[in-house]
Write a protein that binds this DNA or RNA. Structure first.
Lengths: 135, 135
DNA sequence: CCTAATAAGATATAAATTGTCTTTTTAGGG
DNA sequence: CCCTAAAAAGACAATTTATATCTTATTAGG
C-alpha cells in the first residue's frame, strides 16, 4: 500500500528541477531528463500530461522546450502527484461508495476518508518553491 | 498512489468479521469467505499469513477453523494492513534513503516521512473492536 | 524548406496482482 | 486404525499495471 510509482517520482524530480531554475527560461527535455536521471522518453510522456494541465508550458520547434506553467509557490506537491496518478484514493470504496455496500454500512469507510484527507493535507502544504533547491 | 490492494481489503473484511463474532469460537474459512464475499482460496492464503503472525489462531482437522489471535481491542488496523502489505512506504527512499542521494540532499524526502507518519497514525488509532459490527 | 524540438499513438517488456490447483499435514471420530 | 474434515504449503496461471521505447506527426524558427 501507499507506494509511489516511478512515474510520479520521475515527475516530481522533473518539475522540481524546473522550479529551481529561472522560471522564464525554456529548458530542453533531454537536458532535464539527464539532470534528474530519468529516461527521456518517459519524462516526455509525463511532461505532455503536465502540459495539458497547465503545470508546464511547452514550446515546439527550434529553441523549444519546457518551462513551469505557473509560479513555483502556487504549485503544490498534491497537484503534481494527482496530475500524474489521478486522485488519491486509499480504497476503491472512497471513489465509488456503492462498492462499500456489503452489509449495509461499512465501518472501515470513514477511516479511508481520513487517510485520504491527511495525505492530501500534507501534500497540499508543500509547494514547488519549498522543494526547489537553488544552486 | 495510495491504493489499497484487493488482498488488504479482503484481509480486513475477513478479520473484522471475526472480530464481530464471539471470540472464543472457531469459524470455518469457507464460511468466513462466503460471509464477506471473498474467494476462499485467496482468503486462505491471507489467513495463513495472519496465523504466522499471531493475528489469528488456526485449528486443523475436523472441527477446525480460525479465531482471533488476540482481543479485538488490541489489534489495530495498522497491524492488519502491515501484516498483509508490509510496512507503509510512500516512496522507496523512505525505506532505503541511499536511493535519495541524487544531488546530495533530497528536499522531498521529509515530506514522504510525514505522509508515512500521518497514515500510520490514523490506522493505528483504529482497532478491530471499533470496526466490528455486532449483529 | 530544412532542422530542431515536442505531441501523439502504437507497441513491448517486466513485474505485481489476483487468483487457482495439487499435495501435504494435522486432528477428530468411529 | 482408518476415514474424513479441515488448514498449510507450494507450484502454477491469468490478468492487470508499471515501465518504458519506437515511430510518425506536428509545430516553429531560421
Amino acid at each position: 500500500m501507499m507506494e509511489l510509482t516511478r512515474k510520479s517520482d520521475y515527475a516530481i524530480r522533473g518539475i522540481v528541477y524546473l522550479a529551481g531554475k529561472p522560471v522564464d527560461k525554456v529548458y530542453l527535455l533531454s537536458d532535464i531528463a539527464a539532470a534528474v536521471d530519468v529516461p527521456p522518453t518517459f519524462l516526455a510522456k509525463i511532461f505532455q500530461q503536465f502540459s495539458k494541465m497547465g503545470l508546464v508550458k511547452s514550446f515546439r520547434g527550434t529553441g523549444g522546450g519546457f518551462m513551469l506553467g505557473r509560479l513555483p509557490e502556487t504549485i503544490t506537491l498534491l497537484e503534481v502527484v494527482e496530475a500524474v496518478e489521478g486522485p488519491i484514493i486509499p480504497n476503491r470504496c472512497v471513489a465509488t461508495p456503492s462498492d462499500c455496500d456489503r452489509s449495509g454500512i461499512c465501518t472501515v469507510h470513514p477511516v479511508w476518508i481520513r487517510v485520504q484527507e491527511e495525505v492530501r493535507r500534507v501534500l497540499a502544504g508543500v509547494t514547488l518553491k519549498d522543494l526547489a533547491t537553488k544552486e
